[in-house]
Simulated scan of single mutants.
Amino acid sequence: MQETNSGGAVTVAPYGPLSVSDRLAKKALRNFKERVIELLLLGAACVSVLTTVGIIWVLVSESVNFFGTVSIWSFLTDTMWTPLFAEPRYGILPLLAGTLTTSVVALLVAIPLGTTIAIYLSEFARPTVREVVKPFLELLGGIPTIVYGYFALMVVIPLLQLIMPELSGFNMLGAGIVMGIAIIPYVSSLAEDAMRAVPMSMREGSYAMGATRLQTAFRVVFPAALSGILSAYILGISRAVGETMIVAVAAGMQPNFTVNPLEPAQTISAYIVQVALGDLPHGSIGYQSIFAAGLSLMLMTLALNLVGHVVRRRFREAY
Rank of each mutant, 00 (worst) to 15 (best):
M245G: 07
A250S: 13
A232V: 13
G252Y: 06
E263C: 01
V247H: 00
P261C: 09
A250C: 08
A251T: 10
E243T: 07
I246Q: 02
I237C: 12
L226A: 13
R219Q: 06
Y271K: 10
I229A: 02
N260T: 03
L226G: 02
N256C: 01
V241F: 15
I234H: 04
M253E: 09
S238I: 11
I246M: 02
A225F: 12
V247D: 00
V273N: 11
F257E: 12
V249K: 10
A265C: 04
E263D: 04
A240Y: 00
A225K: 05
F222S: 05
R239V: 04
G252S: 06
S238V: 14
A250T: 00
Y233E: 07
Q254S: 14
L230T: 02
F257C: 06
A224S: 14
A248W: 14
A240T: 02
I229Q: 03
T244D: 10
G228N: 06
T267V: 12
I272H: 06
A232N: 04
Y233R: 05
Y233F: 15
R239A: 03
A250Y: 00
L230E: 01
A225R: 09
Q254V: 14
Q266C: 03
S238M: 13
A265K: 05
P223G: 10
L226Q: 03
R219E: 02
V221K: 12
G228C: 06
Q254G: 02
E243S: 09
M253Q: 13
V249A: 09
V247I: 07
A270H: 07
I246D: 00
S238R: 11
P264R: 09
A265M: 06
P223F: 12
I229D: 04
P223C: 08
V273T: 15
I237P: 10
Q254W: 04
G228Q: 12
I234F: 03
P223E: 06
A232E: 05
V221D: 05
R219S: 08
P223D: 06
G228Y: 10
I272V: 15
E263N: 04
Q266F: 07
V249W: 12
V247Y: 00
P223I: 10
A250V: 01
M253W: 11
S238N: 15
G236V: 13
A251I: 11
E263G: 01
P264M: 08
L226F: 15
V220G: 06
R239H: 12
F257Y: 15
E243D: 13
A232T: 08
N260V: 02
G242E: 13
S238L: 14
S227N: 14
I268N: 07
L262D: 04
A270D: 04
M245V: 07
